[in-house]
Design a protein around this nucleic acid. Structure first.
Lengths: 206, 206
DNA sequence: ATTATCTATAGATCTATAGATAATGC
DNA sequence: ATTATCTATAGATCTATAGATAATGC
């Protein structure tokens, strides 16, 4: 309990920050607000994390890693290419369902402050290095054997991320413009999970 | 020249605001910055547009309309469904090529401030009302005749927007994570234009 | 003693407006 | 006279820190 109490607020601030950064992005979230959400005074936010930037980076790098985790996790499973591809899409989609604001956070911060991102790159170097290389190799092999059509890895990943991410990114837009409600969106999401798999599998076929 | 001089700064401020809002979004752009970019003092921004919000809305509603214009423009052309669909995708894509920051602006503002968006809805009501209904009717007819598979209009539009928009949205991310440069991105974009058409046409087939 | 928490505040913005001055249209 | 432009500033943040006080670990 003491140990708990010790890390209590430090952790609480981190979690409050996570919620708010995901909701509104870096620029529109103030440390005052984070403190209020965490139930402490504003000074404490800086006591534990020194600057808003440092606090943000702690949240952000975890989230960025999470976004790409689907690709890394499935890559280690032993499955035929087509099944592996299906799994990647599904795992990625399910992760987004649990973290629906994640695409927004990534887009917002990579777009408005690419500089802040450089430090994050270090933490997700696993992806670019080992995993991407392995995926590329597998993809090339499939193409060589004529089991799928000629396609670049970056094109494939972009398709997955665009189709999966688009659903979550467009949610507020569809809500505002077409007046789409939560229930209707849920039904749409349910359809899209299978459809995205289908579309991508179809798209890599000869 | 006088007339020009008259609207000169008013227009100049609007254009400066447009550039900056597209670059950094509403929250991260200050009226001081807009004034500097427009080459006048900060007071003038408020003289012409009263509040930052009003100035933003002027920019935003134009841009939101532009984003959906592809759907409206092509809808009026007389073409068989499949050709019309191809045209929509291509016209939408080409518009994004000319306005690469547009998807970011829409996402950012619809997500962080859905309230501000309500006033915009008025201005793009053309889409929801006449055009969407017409598209829906055509789509239903194609399905009824068995020329394409069963699909909802919203699914189709989401696919188009996700695939086309994703390329532009992911640009800074790919730049930061994979170190993708401008030239490489251009080549990718060239491929994606045709691929997106192909994928979507394939996806609506039986 | 050390660490956690709070209060108070300096210094940097930033938005919006008031009031002065210059330019333009009758 | 009216409209455009500038300067100056009030008032509201917001971040980061300093210094006081309370809690905890020896």
């Amino acid at each position: 309990m003491e140990e708990n109490k010790n890390t209590n607020l430090e952790q609480g601030i981190l979690e409050a920050a996570e919620r708010l950064f995901l909701e509104k992005g870096f620029a529109m979230t103030s440390t005052t607000e984070i403190a209020k959400e965490a139930g402490c005074n504003q000074g404490l936010v800086h006591y534990y994390y020194r600057t808003k930037e440092k606090l943000f980076e702690e949240v952000f790098s975890k989230k960025a890693e999470l976004f790409f985790s689907a690709f890394m996790n499935v890559e280690n499973e032993e499955l035929p290419f087509r099944e592996k591809l299906r799994r990647v899409i599904e795992v990625h989609f399910d992760m987004l369902m649990k973290n629906p604001r994640l695409p927004f956070l990534l887009i917002n911060e990579f777009t408005t402050n690419p500089g802040r991102v450089l430090s994050v790159k270090e933490k997700i170097k696993n992806l670019p290095e080992s995993v991407l290389a392995k995926m590329e190799k597998e993809l090339k092999e499939e193409i060589r054997c004529g089991r799928i059509r000629e396609i670049e890895l970056v094109d494939l990943m972009l398709m997955i991320i665009s189709l999966n991410g688009g659903l979550f990114i467009a949610k507020p837009i569809m809500g505002a413009i077409m007046g789409m409600g939560e229930e209707e969106w849920e039904r749409l999401a349910k359809r899209r999970r299978d459809e995205n798999v289908r579309i991508i599998l179809q798209a890599v076929e000869g």
